[in-house]
Each structure stands twice: as C-alpha cells, then as structure tokens.
Design a protein around this nucleic acid. Structure first.
Lengths: 93, 93
DNA sequence: TCGGTATTTTGCTAGTTAGCGAAATACGGA
DNA sequence: TCCGTATTTCGCTAACTAGCAAAATACCGA
C-alpha cells in the first residue's frame, strides 16, 4: 500500500494516471503528452507498475498501459476507513 | 492539493496522522511514540501543517496538534471524482 | 530575572529521486 | 539476417529529503 502513496506523490505520475483514465495508451503515446525524455517516463512507468496502479500488456513492440482502477479504489477506501471518514458523527464514537 | 499527496507519501507522517486520529496530542507526546529525534519530528509537523492536514494550537510552551479531517476528506473525494470512482458502470459515460 | 521545560531553527550529512543522453533489448517486416 | 521502431536499462548529475546534534526561541514559575 505504501507504494501507492509513493506513486501518487509525483505530479507527472498523477498526470499519467489521469491520461489513462480516459483510455489505455502505449508508452510512446503517453510520452507524447509530456516534454520529458522517454527514459524519464519509463522510470515513472516502473514506479506505477510496482504500485500496481497500472498494468502493462506487451503486444509486438509496443507496450500498452491501462489504469488498474481497483487498486486505487482499494487504497482510497482503506485510507478513508483508517480515518473513519464516511461515518456519521453519531456513530463516530 | 499536491501538498497533501506529499504529506501522505512519508510513512512517519502517516503514522503521526494515525495517532492524531484518536485524539489531539502535543508535539512532545507525539514524539514519544517514535525513536526519532525531536527536530526530525518537528520537520514532519511542518510538512503536515503546510498540507493543512493538521492544525496546531499553542498554549503556553506546548503546541497541540490535531487532525484536520476535512482536508483529508476533500483530497480523497477530489481524487475519487477525478477517477470517477463511486459511479456505476452504466453512468460512467 | 533566573532556571527549566517545550518546541523550533540552523547547519550539516547520507540516501533517494527525477531528469538526461547513450546504449541495449525486443519485435516485426523486408 | 538486417533495418527501423518501441521501449527499457545504464551511468551519470542536480535537487530534494530525512535524519541528527547543537543552538535559538518561547513560555512559566520561583
């Protein structure tokens, strides 16, 4: 779970996730949205993969990334539960 | 909002937030839960204050920190909204 | 005003991270 | 097998971060 926080901490990675929200994209297509070098983006992909926030699928020479919504969802729910968000004041103890 | 992600990225700071979930505590009391030097914790407090995740109140020589739940709540809701979590598949576009 | 307690600020070091260019790897088509 | 495209790995640097001890600041009681 700590990997998810780490992944979310970087603005470039958050932007990548936002892009993948619309549809899955190849590494090169994602890179075209940034003014960063491809090796730099590749490093971000690695962090996102480690966190399981994105999944990758290789098809020929191109690698397609897609958002793994359930991981994000679970992380946020765990956080909310940890802080007892979403409970009414009456039941909060 | 980026400050919230940054604040959450560090495990020590997450532990501090968990402590404050139960009740507000003084800086020294928080520090007693860690094997870290007080100046180190003081730095973490500063990051948490910047993110508005905690609020501080000075009373005499002691400073009391308390969790600012609404900031965390808003950050998580914004994130969920950004990724369209909590919507059914039918309404998702 | 002096002494003690609580906390932060300062100045430093070691480890981590994001960025780059160049080289390496992997694949598909000719 | 050779070439071109897609992507990652490698080696490096600059910037950032977490950690510490020591000093500074702030407050209160005697």
């Amino acid at each position: 779970m700590a990997e998810v926080y780490r992944a979310l901490a970087d603005p470039t990675r958050r932007k990548i996730l936002q892009l993948l929200r619309e549809r899955e994209m190849s590494a090169g297509e994602i890179a075209s949205h940034f003014a960063l070098a491809k090796p730099t983006l590749s490093g971000h992909f690695a962090v996102l993969r480690e966190s399981r926030l994105v999944a990758s699928e290789k098809s020929g020479a191109t690698i397609t990334y897609r958002l793994n919504v359930s991981v994000l969802e679970e992380a946020l729910l765990a956080l909310m539960e940890g802080f007892r968000l979403g409970e009414s004041k009456e039941t909060r103890k």
